[in-house]
Design a protein around this nucleic acid. Structure first.
Length: 757
DNA sequence: CACCCTCGAGTTCA
DNA sequence: CTCGAGGGTG
């Protein structure tokens, strides 16, 4: 990859500079329009500036200031100016903190300034659009966006379509003038539906609910046909609003902010049900942590928590700076969706030969960890997402774990981006890629026997937990054995020789050291790539690292030192030796037969007792095994028909690998029925005290039960420990009995009846 | 023909 | 751990 590939797009520093330029220019145009009733630039020009600013801020949210012009008009598409409305009282913004510590600091400072104990009103910070409602004698007379805080834009007509906002306040005793401040938002649940409609109508989809809210509120009826008007009303009807403050009412008959909410609620205005008054800073931090964990449990998007001092008397005492009150703060959660640069799209080949394109991105922190790669699945997905190499892309973590590229920020393209072209050849061995079956989207490398990526993948799979569970054979060793830097001829060209490995063969292996972060070879001081020999170590006769086991009479040393095989080398050979007699099903999984994973392998091994019996079985005999049908039968038959697969079996057998279960009565033997869990399906999730992940499964099977991997209606028990996630949630949703580790221990030893005893 | 389930892949973390 | 794909079963 050439350097200029990386230099595309816009750097953070350039972006910051441009944001400043754009902001000045837009504010000049606004001042002219709002204050002097003149225009200094055309609507089109204005729109262009706004779009550009929006685009940059979306890519670099940290550059968006509280009084950015986009916070008043955040949407896109319809950025032409709305009529100006002056707020009766200035709408301030809030200062931000970004960590629990900063929040505590602010609270302690505020409390010290107040000189007495205070109550904290905590509420969810809705990621929407700030709007000011002006009520005169209980009647809604205008609604305006925040604007620059002093003057906003008139959106009264559109606001009237939002059902939850009353045009006349309930109750009596309304002041001659009061401003009600709140947040207009698009409910998350309705958002996907909206985007589907947008797509169907040929309109652009919205990047997030907040843009949808802003875009919806800023639509204009003029020039729309009946269908478009319908769509516009539909969108406005889905908007919701929650209010959280008042303005321009000199002496409200209350002492606390929380009482204001009660008052507003009594008038028929929608207030949030999530606000809480707390009396300690620790409680505030707990509130912040709780909602950080349950961000998606609310109907709207949350970008943080707002903490206000509840006592109104203190609001007056503490006052405000020119932009923000001193009695409130916004805590911002780390973003779950960020933007970063798509540096390249690279294709990797897995153990099955499937060629998978993945995104290589500028490292970026999202939802608590640094991400630099994300899968793009296949060429169709790349096309569907519409990303180009060099694009700024939106990245999130699906289920808070798996990084996912959502799509490009089209506005930030500068013309140097280029489309991804799926390579015709395997990136590792050069063989022409092709679909395995007609109509398959996935391309595969057909060179299964000697494609380095596939051999490496298969060797790694053999060592994995679901197969032979060889501790010393992981990703790194698999790579070292199949293509080391030294020697030129790797110890393994296929997995056939795996069990013939000796310490002497491992000894000379050297691998290139790669940087954990970049994946590029690390260079020594002299500029040559650094090498590491994982299977040997230095033994010294004397000095600081003197080796007490050193035998000075050994003929192998040169001078003061010599190399000896490392512990890892002996361990790997010993692990392999031990693996030869592992249960037949593990050996079956290690053979890398398509569709034969741990579950199918267990069933086959139990039924047939030996690889030879499986091989000799007809399709009909295979299909007798539960969980085995025509596809697995065919897959087995195809596997045994390939010459080099048989060579694997022969050489492994010659090395002592056990392809039969000792004492097995032979094919068709009835599965050993019985056990306390016969006919019972159990799912284990989270960490169960006293059991490893594997151990829990073994315990279920040993008791004659079925250890399923996912929860369904067929599941009888879900054993859940700390850290249980979606499976526990699903069990609760389906009303399946959930048990803890202690109950699980009783279940697998005494059976289900013991639980109720 | 619905479900329900397993497989396989990718990813990050401790 | 999660997702999509596709197999197996009732």
């Amino acid at each position: 990859m050439a350097d200029d590939d990386i230099d595309q797009g816009i750097s953070l520093a350039d972006a910051a500079e441009e944001v400043e330029r754009l902001t000045i220019r837009i504010n000049e145009a606004r001042d002219a329009y709002y204050e002097r009733d003149t225009t200094i630039i055309s609507d089109a020009e204005y729109d262009e500036l706004m779009h550009r600013l929006e685009a940059i801020e979306r890519a670099y949210p940290q550059l968006q200031s509280q009084d950015s012009p986009t916070l008043t008009v955040g949407g896109r598409g319809e950025t032409t100016l709305f009529a100006p409305v002056e707020h009766a009282e200035r709408m301030l913004s809030l200062d931000n903190v970004f960590s629990a510590d900063e929040l505590a600091e602010w609270a302690n400072r505020a409390q010290a300034a107040a000189g007495r104990a205070v109550h904290w009103l905590c509420e969810l910070k809705i990621d929407g659009l700030a709007v000011n409602l002006r009520y005169e004698h209980g009647r809604l007379v205008s609604a305006a966006t925040r604007g620059d805080g002093r003057v906003g834009e008139d959106v009264t007509e559109n606001i009237r379509h939002i059902q939850s906002i009353p045009t006349r306040l309930a109750g009596s005793g309304h002041p001659p003038l009061v401003e009600v401040r709140g947040e207009v938002f698009f409910p998350v649940a309705a958002f996907d539906e909206l985007n589907a409609k947008q797509a169907a109508a040929g309109e652009r989809e919205f990047a997030n609910p907040r843009n949808a809210a802003s875009g919806s509120l800023r639509q204009k009826a003029e020039g729309k046909n009946a269908a478009q008007l319908e769509l516009m009303r539909d969108r406005l009807g889905r908007l919701r609003m929650l209010v959280h403050g008042i303005g321009a009412w000199a002496n409200p008959p209350v002492q606390a902010q929380s009482e204001i909410y009660e008052l507003l609620s009594g008038w028929g205005l929608p207030t949030s049900s999530h606000a809480r008054v707390l009396d300690s800073v620790a409680g505030v931090q707990e509130f912040v942590a709780y909602h950080g964990e349950h961000r998606h449990a609310v109907e709207h998007e949350i970008d943080g928590i707002v903490v206000k001092i509840d006592e109104l008397a203190l609001h007056d005492e503490l006052g405000a700076t020119s932009r923000a009150p001193r009695w409130a703060i916004a805590y911002k959660y780390p973003p779950e969706q960020v933007n970063t640069k798509l540096l390249d799209i690279v294709v990797s080949v897995g153990r099955t030969g499937r060629a998978t394109p993945f995104a290589v991105m500028e490292p970026v922190r999202v939802a608590g960890s640094v991400v630099r790669q994300a899968t793009l699945h296949n060429q169709d997905v790349v096309k569907a997402k519409g990303v180009l190499i060099g694009d700024t892309v939106v990245l999130r973590k699906a289920g808070d774990v798996i990084p996912e590229v959502l799509g490009p920020v089209v506005e930030l393209r500068d013309g140097t981006e280029r489309p991804f072209v799926m390579p015709q050849e395997c990136p590792e061995c050069g063989t022409t890629l092709r679909p395995m079956k007609a109509g398959d989207i996935d391309l595969r490398c057909p060179n299964a026997r000697s494609c380095p990526a596939q051999v490496r993948g298969r060797v790694e799979h053999i060592g994995s937990r679901g197969a032979l569970d060889i501790e010393a054979l992981g990703e790194v060793s698999a790579a070292a054995l199949t293509h080391p830097a030294v020697p030129a001829e790797p110890p393994l060209s296929t997995e056939a020789g795996l069990f013939e490995l000796t310490v002497a063969e491992l000894f000379p292996i050297e691998v290139v050291v790669r940087d954990v972060e970049t994946g590029l070879p690390r260079l020594d001081d002299d500029g040559t790539p650094a090498y590491r020999a994982p299977f040997r170590r230095l033994r010294r006769r004397s000095g600081r690292d003197a080796d007490p086991a050193f035998d000075p009479d050994s003929p192998e040393f040169r001078g003061d030192e010599r190399h000896v095989p490392s512990k890892a080398a002996y361990e790997l050979v010993a692990n392999l030796e031990a693996a030869k007699t592992k249960p037949l099903w593990r050996i079956l999984v290690a053979l890398n037969i398509r569709h034969v994973g741990p579950v199918a392998a267990r069933a086959l091994a139990d039924h047939f007792g030996s690889l030879e019996a499986i091989r000799a079985a007809t399709d009909a005999e295979l299909a007798e095994v539960e969980g085995v049908g025509p596809t697995i039968a065919e897959s087995l038959r195809e596997w045994f028909a390939i010459e080099w697969h048989l060579e694997i079996v022969e050489r492994w057998a010659a090395s002592g690998v056990q392809f039969a279960t000792p004492g097995h009565p032979g094919p068709g033997a009835a599965a050993a029925a019985g056990g306390v869990l016969a006919g019972i399906t159990v799912v284990a999730t989270g960490s169960l005290e006293g059991y490893s992940r594997e151990g829990a499964q073994e315990a279920i099977i040993a008791a004659g039960g079925k250890a399923a991997s996912s929860v369904s209606k067929q599941t009888d028990f879900v054993a859940a420990g700390p850290g249980a996630g979606s499976k526990l949630a699903k069990a609760e949703a389906l009303g399946i009995r959930v048990i803890d580790a202690a109950q699980f221990a009783r279940l697998v030893t005494e059976g289900p009846a013991a639980l109720d005893a």
